[in-house]
Nucleic acid binder design. Structure first.
Lengths: 106, 106
DNA sequence: TCCATTCATCGCAATATTACGATTAATATA
DNA sequence: TATATTAATCGTAATATTGCGATGAATGGA
């Protein structure tokens, strides 16, 4: 059905999955790396960096914004996208937690 | 078009995105947490834990196997799924790297 | 004011994902 | 051998994602 069931999972599981899903595309990984490296904040510069059309990049930016990882501020004619530090730290913690809890098996 | 462009991105970006995509569903997060906690390795126990049908869970297990995070060993009639330690550590490193490189912006 | 620039959104097409029941294959057990 | 158990796979339906061109809205400059 293409629709993801969320009942029966914890809120933390659903949120972590949503975060991971947002990272689940090379373009969005590249965008975050670009912003984290602070090469530029300007949307147009991001578009120039990626092998995708402006409208497609805009959609990817929207997804990252929806999950809260970035925010966009209008700077005159252009838009400055930035990583949301609070969400970034939280995401880092959640992901780190997932990977740190590991006991060898079988 | 539903198809993800990979040309123009680095191999690392494509791989990290593939990993994140595999984590991008609550069921797969839950499966990994369950295995990491080593509550059990048996496929049937995972199915019992999740609010999804056996065939759906089997598909999620397959995706995690495809990305290399887990492996399945046949144990008589049942199958023992385990986290692949090597892939797990590598994934941890890649994710940690992404989140560690961050300079405050604007 | 008129125009260029910037970026979001719409509409579409192609493909992917999610979910489930039914079936199948393999193994154990009676 | 016949049967039950386990888990993968098939087939199908519904929905989501990806990508792009075209269009729109907003801003700044000539």
């Amino acid at each position: 059905m293409g629709i993801t069931k969320t009942e029966g999972f914890t809120k933390a599981q659903v949120e972590l999955a949503a975060l991971a899903k947002a990272l689940g595309h090379p373009a969005r990984v590249a965008i975050l790396q670009f912003l984290a490296a602070k090469k530029s904040c300007i949307c147009g510069d991001i578009v120039d960096e990626l092998p995708l059309s402006q409208s497609t990049v805009s959609q990817h930016l929207k997804e990252l914004k929806n999950v809260g990882l970035i925010k966009g501020d209008i700077e005159g004619p252009s838009v400055c996208y930035c990583i949301d530090e609070k969400a970034w730290i939280k995401a880092q913690k959640n992901v780190t937690d997932l990977f740190s809890k590991f006991n060898t098996c079988c």
